[in-house]
């Protein structure tokens, strides 16, 4: 008994160095199940895909995809995108793009605010479609332990709240938490620029009174919402979507524990933000028509 290495009780056989080797301990996939341990359901995803996503992707938004080869075929990677729209269609379109265009399609996990876990309905539906709460531990497990693709919107709420007049102007990128997550998992960052989402669901104003009454994160005024009822949230205009994946930024060559270096984290966060903004400006300059591309 006494020869066993002693670790503090609060921190079990799980000093970080040990924990990194726990990948082999991941539970095996049970083939009989159609729901993953994260709550993602193949069936629900398939139904939503058939009912809405497929139609939006092909016919409504006529999504064109560039640089799909920049999405790694294996290993964890953090996909970072600009964000907009009241009920943002961009996440679904990015996931669909990887599913349709990539030579080795992989599921994409989307991080969402903790708010949704506590709101009835959303709490039930979002995990079934591959959303996970944006907790650093969740992102780390997905990227490092499970080697999955994770999509984050560093603008978060600030992106979805912004009005039509501010379209394609990236908000602040949080405190660089997404960069730290990628560094810890030694996963590359894949920046993505999405054009079209801002026009698909322009937000003219934020209705703060309704927001307080419903307890929702925000209640936007869009061409179809709220006067056409809750389903008006799905009222998208047929803007032409272009999704451009950019060259991955590696994070495994930055030395020991780069996430402790706040300056480096901020530099990379700014760099990612600048790349996406430049790319957006470039794509907007090339675009002849909002509706036809």
């Amino acid at each position: 008994m006494a020869e066993r290495p002693r670790t503090p009780l609060r921190d079990p056989g799980a000093v970080p160095a040990v924990r990194e080797d726990l990948r082999s301990g991941l539970p095996a996939v049970e083939a009989e199940r159609h729901v993953t341990d994260w709550g993602r359901s193949e069936r629900v995803e398939a139904v939503v895909d058939r009912l809405a996503v497929d139609f939006l992707y092909r016919l409504w938004f006529r999504v064109s995809v560039e640089g799909i080869e920049h999405v790694p075929a294996r290993g964890g990677a953090l996909v970072v995108s600009n964000h907009s729209g009241a009920l943002p269609p961009d996440a679904a379109m990015i996931a669909k793009a990887i599913k349709e265009e990539h030579p080795r399609p992989r599921p994409l996990h989307l991080t969402v605010e903790h708010f949704f876990k506590g709101y009835p309905g959303f709490s039930m539906l979002l995990p079934k479609l591959g959303a996970v709460p944006a907790h650093p531990a969740n992102v780390h497990r997905l990227l490092w332990d499970e080697q999955q693709l994770v999509l984050v919107f560093p603008e978060g709420r600030k992106g979805t709240e912004k009005l039509y007049k501010d379209r394609y102007r990236l908000r602040r990128f949080g405190r660089g938490g997404f960069v730290q997550a990628a560094m810890r998992a030694r996963a590359p960052i894949v920046p993505v620029a999405v054009v079209g989402a801002e026009e698909a669901q322009p937000v003219f104003a934020q209705l703060s009174l309704l927001q307080r009454l419903t307890g929702l994160l925000y209640v936007p005024l869009t061409p179809t919402f709220p006067h056409l009822g809750p389903l008006g949230m799905l009222g998208y205009l047929p803007a032409k979507f272009t999704i451009r994946f950019m060259e991955p930024i590696p994070t495994d060559d930055l030395g020991d524990e780069p996430w402790e270096d706040q300056a480096l984290v901020q530099t990379i966060a700014h760099d990612v933000r600048a790349r996406i903004q430049d790319e957006l400006d470039d794509m907007l300059a090339q675009r002849a028509s909002v509706w036809l591309g």
Binding site: P12, K117, A137
Partner: peptide
């Protein structure tokens, strides 16, 4: 509401 999806012992 703001729990991680998996608690580890050091949390």
């Amino acid at each position: 509401q703001d729990d991680p999806a998996y608690f580890t012992e050091d949390m």
